[in-house]
Design a protein around this nucleic acid. Structure first.
Lengths: 194, 194
DNA sequence: GATGCTATTGAGTGTGCGACCAATAAGCAA
DNA sequence: TTGCTTATTGGTCGCACACTCAATAGCATC
């Protein structure tokens, strides 16, 4: 992949290099798991010495936390993007449900399981997980409130409904690493106004 | 804890020693996590050389899988024990819900998150997780069927309801490692006949 | 009390990890 | 062009891990 023949140093803008590192780490997090984010591995991906990663992230845990935050934020942006003009809450929610079911969502489910478990031992990551949980909950709640205000959705308490949706989503996603075969499709959530 | 002064070999019955090792590993799994099951750690707990653990479990992954299986099975037995004579399904289900909510269940939630994540990399563990998921689902489904047959529960399909309950339980348990504060109690499942 | 089986030990191997640090060179500014 | 800042390198250290294997000693059996 990278040239072994001779190292040619490329001196980059610190901010750009840092972003590059985080992006690489986020990609590894999604594809292979947060524990695969090692100084050696990320350095290899960027064709750079491991020490350089340490230079930007004195503690490896910081990079792991940052990588998760970036990956989760990007995924959320894909699931609940800013409303296009004239787009109704029902359409946006339908899009959300369409993307959160099916095998394509497995990678994100795996990431969440991964992060929630690793949080047990990594305080910095735990903080990021809490932050992202808040972001996801907030963005979905906002949508539900809009839908209720516009008369498209009907629920006693949009905030409670938000949590209920996320709980079911987490419950369904729990098996992303284990379920080989068919999912319990019977337990699918209804993607229509309630 | 253990005597460092002099090692006195204690030669035990293989089956007993093996069970002792698995029990110790299961305890570590519940208290600290599956990745804390190391040859050194378990050997230390039993005041025995690490090599002995290898003797019984040529591959460490086998021990991890076995430990999870034992821990999960024990917990299930505590949550859904065999019906005492005259005990009605409603009482048994109430007991189940009583034990699966609240902080006391956090340790089990943590274990499941742990196992489901680690399953990503450990095939033997993945098999055990699938096995235990089947056991939990089967035991709960059996109870629901009894309740429906006896007229205590009302549901179109007990098997679907079983999965729905477990999905919600998994969803609620997902935050066992991260939630510091109050849970979304609003999203609690109803522990009464439906 | 002697014998044999094997549970148990002790010591060692190799791997991958994060962290540390002095030396080096890229590229900007003067 | 010269010089300076610092991004980047290269090498090293210590740790924890699983795994291997010959040597040892409990303990049951005879």
């Amino acid at each position: 992949m990278s040239s072994r023949v001779q190292r040619k140093r490329i001196r980059k803008d610190p901010a750009a290099r840092r972003a590059e590192i985080v992006d690489a780490a986020a990609a590894v997090a999604l594809a292979e798991g947060l524990e695969c984010i090692t100084l050696r591995r990320i350095g290899e991906d960027l064709d750079v010495r491991p020490g350089l990663i340490s230079h930007y992230f004195p503690s490896a845990e910081e990079l792991v936390a940052e990588a998760f935050g970036t990956a989760a934020r990007n995924e959320l942006d894909g699931l609940l993007p800013a409303a296009a003009p004239g787009q109704r809450p029902t359409e946006r929610l339908a899009r959300f449900f369409a993307h959160t079911t099916g095998d394509a969502y497995d990678a994100i489910s795996r990431l969440w399981i991964n992060a929630r478990h690793l949080s047990r031992y990594r305080p910095l990551l735990r903080d990021r997980v809490a932050e992202q949980e808040g972001a996801w909950r907030g963005r979905l709640a906002e949508l539900l409130h809009e839908g209720v205000a516009g008369g498209e959705f009907r629920t006693a308490d949009p905030d409670v409904t938000t949590i209920q949706i996320l709980v079911v989503l987490d419950g369904l996603g729990a098996h992303a690493n284990t379920d080989i075969s068919n999912r319990p499709t019977a337990a699918r959530v209804r993607a229509r106004p309630w």
